[in-house]
Design a protein around this nucleic acid. Structure first.
Lengths: 213, 213
DNA sequence: TTTTGTTTGAAACGGTTGTTTGAATAAGTT
DNA sequence: AACTTATTCAAACAACCGTTTCAAACAAAA
């Protein structure tokens, strides 16, 4: 009932192993299609471990979601800072870094998993009652991007910058969700080509929007 | 076992009613979260009706998916033709029509349901073994869009047009998936403003890509 | 060693799922 | 009318789900 009551910090291995497995299975198969038996079998532990360490499937999902979001947004923001504090930051430079970080999960399928895909899942089928996505992390990321855009593109208002953020998010989303699908129907494109295209497309789009009345 | 064996065409009412309910519930809640009991209760028929008329939950899903895709792609292509056969078709004109048709499900939540959302669901959790999306319909739509883009934008190659299609698809996807989410965190924007922004953004993006080496 | 608290294990519980069954009803034909 | 087919219905089925239980194994401290 009161799992890890005293030992507030870390239960050594099983907890982490379960979080790792959860990150992989939940992102690949979704919440409903991943059973507790799947998770524990892949983690090499007993079925009861999920309830013992986390208090239920829901809360394991929540814990992994938050851990993952914190990691990825921290990385994105670090990248943005690196670009913006360089000697001569350009819009193209900023876009390429952001796109590449978001899309690096596409090629060389090492363990990297895109948060956006997770967020899309959570948005289609909410599993947490509380405000779905960790708002502190996400809002912070959103503001950092908008702030950078306003600095990089003369004449861009805050409102317009938000709309641009949405467009950028969509452009990233598309290959994340559909790259495999298009590959299957013969429309295969390398990630580098996609990124180059997206930089050209988005840079022109943002600059045009900045000049628009 | 052999449902509607002789009467190959239409079983009068229950079939259609089930397809309508399935279209609504599957798109709102997803495949797994929609039980056969939900479907039949909303359709006002018996539980066994799904298996009797369609042969199972899977095949009801498939039938509604195909019916819906055929309808929406037909409408999209009709719109494209209307624009392209007008006296002076412009890129902005084409984009606005396409965007508005795709996003009309956002405001005034009448029964309209976006296919793209369905396709995203199906892409995240495939429920059909066969090539997921009806390829004839989708490929046709894709080609029509690319063809129109090449005609409207001088210098745009076929390969580049495909990449632009992907970017457009992403830009449409974003509000479809996240509009409600952003509204909940105070970032509410009217559909008209979104569309105007997207037209500006995409038009500049496409023209820039056309001039790129 | 004995004691104490934490972690694991196999089995079972209650609930929901999609599907099947077989009788009852409706519709259609001869 | 009788007979045949198509459809509906309530009930039951088998399989899976997340969770609980409680005894066994383990660790660390006394």
């Amino acid at each position: 009932m009161d799992f890890q009551a005293k030992n507030g910090l870390s239960t050594p291995q099983v907890r982490e192993k379960l979080l790792d497995v959860a990150e992989r299975l939940f992102t690949e198969q979704g919440f409903s299609h991943t059973s507790v038996r799947d998770l524990t079998k892949n983690a090499g532990c007993n079925i009861a471990a999920v309830n013992y360490h986390f208090g239920g499937k829901d809360q394991l999902y929540k814990a992994m979601f938050h851990r993952h979001m914190d990691r990825v947004f921290a990385k994105q923001i670090a990248n943005i800072n690196k670009v913006m504090t360089s000697e001569s930051p350009t819009l193209e430079n900023f876009l390429e870094t952001t796109f590449r970080t978001s899309l690096e999960a596409l090629d060389s399928s090492d363990g990297r998993i895109p948060v956006l895909k997770l967020i899309v899942r959570e948005n289609l089928n909410p599993h947490m009652k509380e405000k779905v996505v960790k708002l502190e992390s996400f809002s912070n990321f959103l503001e950092q991007v908008c702030e950078a855009l306003v600095k990089l593109v003369p004449g861009l208002s805050n409102d317009r910058a938000f709309l641009c953020f949405c467009s950028l998010q969509g452009m990233v989303l598309q290959p994340l969700l559909f790259h495999d699908f298009y590959a299957e129907i013969g429309k295969n494109v390398s990630v580098d080509i996609i990124i180059n295209h997206m930089v050209d497309f988005a840079a022109a789009g943002i600059r045009a929007v900045a000049k628009s009345k």
